[in-house]
């Protein structure tokens, strides 16, 4: 009677006594139980934003986690403070696992206090992620504003690691000032690498800034820039105001709403479709998203 339809891989987990544990059910079946992670090192990105490199204490957890897809996220647990959802900036093609986190609330604040060697909890990966396999044979256009580059970094690194599977790859990245451009080593690599066009811009220049000045959408009209519209997927991540303007610019170029994809951010407590906080319209952002096409986002009926 209580066995509702489920996509579970373990149809008999209820009835198999060997799976019993002191918690009443096996820890691997506990969807709220974080695994222990160890902080390896911390790298400053920009003001209030740091990258935290970490690994799971148990190598089996690390191995299981490595199956994540670009665009997925994880729940990060801090002792006594709680949990928060965090994008996964690494690509599954890389060996290190890390988060890039802006200090904005109590949990992110607690993470920023941690020192190498400290323990915290991680569970995941969660969410749908970008269907990178389905995009094979297409042009990829990445448009990021500010810390919107964090989730897109995963897709970019993934796409470059599978370079032969895609046609043209273009990156447009904007920040408020040159000091607020993040992932500097990656940016330098992408700017000089063959087979990828990387265009940077800042809203306000600085004395040592020789690059483009203007909002990220203005890069589309920069001399020499030509964006293919046919057979192209545009990834857009950034603050709400940037998102609205970039959508306008891409629509003007002729992009259909279906070919513009983004990830949504919402308050979440569980990450697995139960707590209800991230629900918009008919979608639970944690399990139905966080990746949606702009066509879907418009139908959900809430601000991005």
């Amino acid at each position: 009677m209580i066995l509702g339809p489920t996509t579970s891989n373990h149809p008999h987990r209820d009835t198999d006594p060997s799976r019993a544990s002191p918690g009443g059910f096996a820890p691997e079946d506990n969807i709220y139980l974080p695994r222990i992670a160890v902080l390896d090192r911390v790298v400053d990105e920009i003001a209030e934003v740091r990258t935290f490199y970490w690994h799971f204490e148990d190598p089996a957890d690390q191995e299981a986690f490595r199956r994540f897809r670009p665009g997925q996220f994880a729940q990060v647990s801090l002792f006594g403070t709680g949990e928060f959802p965090a994008s996964l900036p690494p690509s599954p093609t890389e060996h290190e696992t890390f988060f890039t986190i802006r200090q904005v609330g109590s949990c992110t604040g607690a993470l920023h206090q941690l020192k190498p060697g400290d323990r915290f909890g991680v569970r995941g990966p969660y969410g749908n992620g970008f269907p990178m396999e389905a995009y094979r044979g297409k042009n990829l256009v990445f448009v990021a504003g500010g810390i919107g580059l964090i989730p897109l970094r995963s897709c970019i690194v993934y796409a470059l690691a599978h370079r032969h599977e895609y046609q043209r790859i273009q990156i447009f990245y904007g920040a408020k000032t040159p000091r607020e451009l993040m992932y500097r080593p990656n940016l330098a690599e992408w700017e000089s690498a063959a087979g990828v066009e990387c265009h940077l811009t800042v809203d306000r220049g600085a004395e040592d800034w020789t690059g483009h000045v203007g909002v990220v959408g203005s890069l589309f009209r920069k001399p020499g820039v030509e964006i293919p519209v046919e057979n192209t997927i545009a990834f857009v991540c950034g603050p709400p105001v940037m998102f609205r303007f970039v959508i306008k610019d891409l629509s003007a170029l002729g992009f259909s709403e279906r070919n513009i994809v983004s990830t949504l951010e919402r308050y979440m407590k569980c990450g697995v479709g139960k707590c209800g906080h991230c629900c918009i319209g008919v979608a639970y952002v944690c399990v139905d998203g966080p990746v949606f096409s702009y066509e879907q986002i418009k139908r959900l009926g809430e601000d991005i």
């Binding site: 339809p5 697995v272 139960k274 399990v287």
Partner: peptide, 14 residues
């Protein structure tokens, strides 16, 4: 709700 879809809530199930 708690036993269906992608994830099964073990606390609820027990």
């Amino acid at each position: 709700f708690y036993l269906g879809r992608d994830y099964r809530d073990g606390y609820y199930a027990e």
